[in-house]
Amino acid sequence: MSLPDLTALWLTARLAFVTTLVLLVFGTPLAWWLAQTRSRFKPAIEAIIALPLVLPPTVLGFYLLIAMSPNAPFGEFWMAATGDTLSFSFTGLVIGSVIYSFPFMIQPLQSAFEGPVQQAMRTAASLRASRLDAFFSVALPMSVRGFVTATVLSFAHTLGEFGVVLMVGGNIPDRTRVASIEIYENVETLNYGDAHALSLILLIISFITLFCVFLFNKRFPAHVRL
């Protein structure tokens, strides 16, 4: 297999890693809030979070392309701050991927935080544990399975991203030409050998990743009892 293929694969791995990290940092508090809130806005927020599940990536890609343009306020701000366009950049792809994989992080975390975890939190509070202390020593260990599922699904889903990257990436080697784009290009140029090699690698990585989640889930109950 030729070298550029591995470049694309390595870029894909970095994109998936950074995206998952960003999602963990922003997704955890949001999922926590959703799990315990009684706000009447909750259904609306849940619906917004689930949108990437049903919207075609072209819709998301199109809106991102417009929002990231230096002609739009956000893109203009970014251009002024960094001297580079947000579209066609790695950062731009991370933003796109975070939105695209959002439900894959939030939904498993939210269901992990609901029910028994909230009950345990109330018990911890009655024992005068601070909320932060209770979160880290009670809620977090109880939700291990949710975290594993959310992290792996977000990572795997970003590995398989195509439509959004195609629309805002610009196909720049080592910056935005991810594995799925490289495969697409190989197929379009009748370069089936490279397409096969790269597709097989992605297939194996995705299978192993998902296999590990299901193996892990089988060994851990939905909520770990302390």
Partner: peptide, 16 residues
């Protein structure tokens, strides 16, 4: 790089 000349047009038309 646009995937087609159509996408290239969109990149420029949207100001990206």
């Amino acid at each position: 790089y646009g995937e087609s000349v159509g996408q290239t047009f969109a990149f420029i038309r949207t100001g990206n």
